[in-house]
Simulated scan of single mutants.
Amino acid sequence: MPPIHRQLVDRVAIGRYEEEVTHPSAIKSFVAEFISALIFVFAGQGSGMAFAKLTDGGATTPAGLVAAAIAHGLALFVAVAISANISGGHVNPAVTFGAFVGGNITLLRGIFYIIAQLLGSVVACLLLWFSTGGLTTSGFAVSAGVSVWNALVFEIVMTFGLVYTVYATAVDPKKGDIGTIAPLAIGLIVGANILAGGAFSGASMNPAVAFGPAVVSWDWGNHWIYWAGPLIGGGLAGAIYELIFISRSHEPL
């Protein structure tokens, strides 16, 4: 058996520009990722803004945390479901990176997926800003008493669980009937993780979710955590699941 690092290298590929970027099916995938990210961020961020308005800042209370978990879980369930048959329903740069590490998407297509996801998040936050009469979309922040390293570990672990769930329910060729509930399982793990980590790191698990509000509010405090944590966690989940539980020689999707 070749060494682990060699197995991973054999799985990844750059891809051909004509097939991975300009082909009509690739363009449809980018549009699907853009729309799904827009829907997810609009619903997730919008629910937090609405709850804060209705409760005079109550979004930071336990009830606000539960509301955020439900809204994000439901919105991600829908966002994944509506794009699963077109782009695979990533909706998250960390998921895309995990898929790339496992050899399930090429580098070129992965880069354009991430660009589409980031644009979808920014547009969603701009729409929220405009439609609410100028209310600022709240960026992610580390809670008082929590160090940046604590928050980083939270983001790594939570995103690991998310991407591992994606692999188990949507990527694994042995998934069988469990694949039909993949969007629900993915939405549920995000909701559960928000309940677990929302009071500490904000529970982003998704660089695009953090990027849109940061652009619109122009608040970049500790923003690196919401890239480093999810990408590390997603990459680890993709590598571990692919190497241990999936035995195959294949071309990247």
Rank of each mutant, 00 (worst) to 15 (best):
D177M: 04
V153R: 00
G176I: 07
I178D: 13
I156H: 07
G134N: 09
Y167W: 08
V163D: 08
T137Q: 03
L184W: 10
L162K: 06
S147F: 09
K174V: 05
F154T: 13
I156P: 06
S147A: 06
A141I: 07
A141M: 03
A168F: 05
T169G: 00
M158F: 15
G145P: 09
G161C: 08
V146F: 04
T136D: 03
G133S: 06
T165K: 02
V148P: 00
G139R: 06
S143N: 15
V148S: 12
V166H: 06
I156V: 15
V163Y: 07
G139A: 14
V146W: 01
W149K: 03
F154S: 10
I156R: 00
F140K: 02
S147V: 11
Y164S: 09
M158H: 10
G145F: 07
I181W: 09
S138I: 15
M158R: 01
V146L: 04
Y164R: 02
Y164M: 11
T136F: 00
A141V: 14
T169W: 05
T180H: 08
L184S: 09
V148N: 14
T137D: 01
A141D: 09
I178L: 14
A185V: 15
I178R: 10
S143M: 04
K175I: 11
N150W: 08
G179R: 07
D177S: 13
A185E: 12
G176C: 10
V157S: 09
P183S: 03
I181K: 01
M158Y: 14
A182Q: 11
T159C: 01
P183W: 04
M158S: 13
Y167R: 03
E155C: 09
D172Q: 07
G176N: 09
L135E: 15
T169K: 00
F160L: 09
S138H: 04
G161R: 01
Y167A: 07
P173C: 03
N150P: 01
A185N: 12
A144R: 11
G179T: 13
N150F: 02
W149T: 15
G145N: 10
F140R: 02
V166M: 02
S138M: 07
Y164A: 14
G139V: 12
I178S: 15
V142L: 01
V166L: 10
T137P: 13
G134M: 08
E155S: 11
F160H: 05
G176P: 05
E155I: 13
A185W: 06
P173Y: 09
F140A: 10
S147M: 03
W149I: 15
A151S: 11
K174T: 14
A141F: 06
V166Y: 04
Y167Q: 12
T137I: 04
V166F: 07
T159Y: 02
S143E: 15
M158N: 06
T136L: 00
G134E: 11
T136M: 04
T165W: 00
M158A: 13
D172A: 00
F140P: 08
G161A: 03
V153C: 02
T180M: 02
V163C: 01
T165I: 08
K174G: 05
I181D: 12
A168E: 11
G133R: 06
V142H: 01
G134S: 10
